[in-house]
């Protein structure tokens, strides 16, 4: 009986096929991971609800940006390179000065009673402000909050806030994050832009 020899499949074109697929994926996909600044917009104004009472002048840190991308902070022109430091001083008010924000005692998990600042940062831009400048200002203000949170976290838990956020699923880190967020709340309010 004649044994038919099994013929092997020629795999020489396998590489070509794989290359084809590879090139297809290279063309149709993108590598960039999406990163950015997360913000929450205020809900639309309800005309039937009365506006909240005005906030005391000492608790507000006004930042204005004009159409030439210049900053006016608390009524004085300022360079963006020192905005972060100024915002930190305002939020923290380390010497409890009269013209800087007042404090209110609040219950915070883990820490117990904490003096929480009543600060609000008010940001207003012009319609002619460039997007780049706007993001730069938003970034500096966020950096001020993040640096203060880092300091507090370092003091209380011995590790920076960034690390807590990164490992938020480990241990009671989410609890710690909540405590820090409550002690230094992130409050940037945006006014309607100038026409």
């Amino acid at each position: 009986m004649a044994r038919r020899q099994l013929q092997e499949i020629n795999a020489g074109s396998m590489a070509d096929i794989a290359f084809l697929l590879l090139i297809f994926f290279l063309v149709t996909t993108t590598m960039d991971t999406d990163t950015g600044l997360n913000r929450r917009l205020p809900p639309p104004l309800d005309p039937t609800v009365e506006p909240p009472p005005p906030i005391k002048e000492r608790n507000v840190f006004t930042v204005l940006v004009n159409s030439n991308n210049q900053l006016l902070v608390e009524g004085k022109p300022m360079d963006i390179s020192i905005l972060r430091e100024q915002a930190k001083i305002f939020i923290e008010n380390p010497q409890r000065l009269e013209h800087l924000p007042a404090f209110l005692e609040k219950d915070v998990p883990i820490f117990g009673k904490v003096q929480v600042s009543k600060q609000v940062i008010s940001l207003q831009n012009d319609r002619g402000t460039s997007y780049e400048m706007y993001i730069a200002v938003q970034n500096e203000l966020a950096a001020a909050y993040n640096e203060l949170r880092d300091d507090l976290s370092q003091k209380e838990f011995g590790e920076p806030y960034k690390l807590l956020v990164k490992n938020k699923k480990i241990g009671n880190n989410s609890e710690k994050i909540r405590a820090i967020k409550k002690s230094i709340p992130f409050r940037i309010s945006e006014a309607e832009p100038n026409q």
Binding site: D34, T35, G36, R40, N125, D126, G128, Y134, P193
Partner: peptide, 29 residues
């Protein structure tokens, strides 16, 4: 958004998003 864009159009978009109750936004950077 492109860096060169002026804030006017962005403010209008934000206003519309607020009206539509889409409040969670992200500035891609």
């Amino acid at each position: 958004v492109d860096t060169e864009v002026k804030m006017g159009i962005i403010s209008d978009i934000k206003m519309e998003l607020r009206e539509a109750q889409a409040l969670k936004i992200n500035y891609s950077t």
